[in-house]
Design a protein around this nucleic acid. Structure first.
Lengths: 218, 218
DNA sequence: GATCATATTAACTATTTGGTACATATTGTC
DNA sequence: GACAATATGTACCAAATAGTTAATATGATC
């Protein structure tokens, strides 16, 4: 009989493997988000963990596997947040507003996730495509939007030709860009968007832009 | 008297230094856009040029300097395109539509530029900030938008509270995201946006979204 | 054609970096 | 306590990589 691998607490162990793995993943997330796949250094990651380089290779086959698992963990975490949204009780416009505000805030609060997505795009989505885990997490944002759109069209507040996917594109683009392109935008154009006050205004601007698009009578 | 460094044709030279430099820059642009600063390999760049690695270091001090000059050349090229836009003869709405369409098309046609900007943002704009050349090129897109907004407000077609910079943010975000996040978006959500037909529809959607925002009566 | 600055080649190096070999410790199970 | 499986620390290596050294070719200028 193989040793029980049940998730029962392995109390008594000098170090909990789960914790060691989690610690490595967390440090690696920061490093990969900071420097990219080729820019991140395994030695640097090792130094910042509570363990050694040896353990990174013990739990994660190699640098690419570690990166992939970092990516998967980041997507999983994001999905967890999304799942907490409860919009069904709200009127379509209010629900849409709340979804936009949530997306805006969430992206802002998770720059590491945004950076990992940027890095993945630099790699043409090579690892994203590779990951069955991530592909299986078809973002729930879409189903939320589908529900909002259906209700909005049904009660006449939304135009009949609104497509949930196009709406998602617009919301995602505006909220993503706010985090992803902050450095270049503030270097070339205007830093004022990114002050606390500026972000509040920008957030409301984005909400208004999205709402104006769905209720428009054109 | 120092030797004439005038730009007169140096015909007769075995190889035109200008051409060698330009060749290196072009190859380096592709490589850096493809793999990022740390991902790009000087040896690979050298192999793809008509010259040798030694010449890269002869004309460009080191990898970072080469990257910086690639970045500067890319921005210069983009500005050149922008400068060709002639919008003053158009009505505000038409001018805005054309600016959005131009931005959408330009970004689509210059994925290498988009990727360099992404990479720069991964580096927190370190090299952008460093470059006096780029900082001095305050994108003309802003002055174009200022003019359009002024005229739109004057003739009453635009809302009075429209800010050119916020408008630029919106346009840039939507058009940038279309190129930058193509891989991740199509991997997770929908590939149909990126077919030829899908891009036409998306472009018009973006135009409509922007226009709806400026004429809105909210 | 002597001289000098520019342009170019090929081979070399110091260092970094991902990855590993080997020895050892810890713990559950019998 | 013996044994096996899991977990960990130390020292090491081969390959890759940015950058260099030293020698040489080329053309402009006088």
């Amino acid at each position: 009989m193989p040793p029980s691998t049940s998730a029962k607490t392995r109390s008594g162990w000098k170090k909990d493997p789960q914790a060691v793995k989690a610690n490595i993943l967390q440090v690696a997330t920061e490093e990969f988000a900071m420097s990219g796949l080729s820019g991140a250094r395994i030695n640097v990651i090792a130094d910042k963990t509570n363990t050694s380089k040896r353990m990174i290779y013990y739990y994660f086959e190699n640098k690419e596997t570690l990166y992939l698992q970092v990516l998967e963990a980041a997507y999983a975490e994001m999905r967890r947040s999304e799942a907490e949204l409860r919009l069904t009780g709200l009127q379509p416009c209010d629900a849409l507003r709340r979804l936009v505000e949530f997306t805006f805030d969430h992206h802002r609060e998770h720059p590491d996730f945004i950076r990992l997505v940027m890095i993945e795009n630099i790699h043409h989505g090579k690892y994203l495509k590779q990951s069955a885990v991530i592909r299986s997490m078809n973002s729930s944002a879409i189903s939320l939007l589908e529900d909002i759109c259906n209700r909005g069209k049904a009660d006449g507040t939304f135009r009949a030709d609104i497509e949930p996917m196009a709406l998602h594109f617009q919301i995602s683009a505006l909220c993503f860009y706010n985090v992803a392109n902050r450095s270049s935008f503030s270097a070339i154009f205007d830093k004022s968007f990114f002050s606390e006050q500026g972000q509040l205004v920008l957030r409301e601007n984005i909400v208004q832009a999205v709402l104006a698009g769905v209720v428009g009578t054109i």
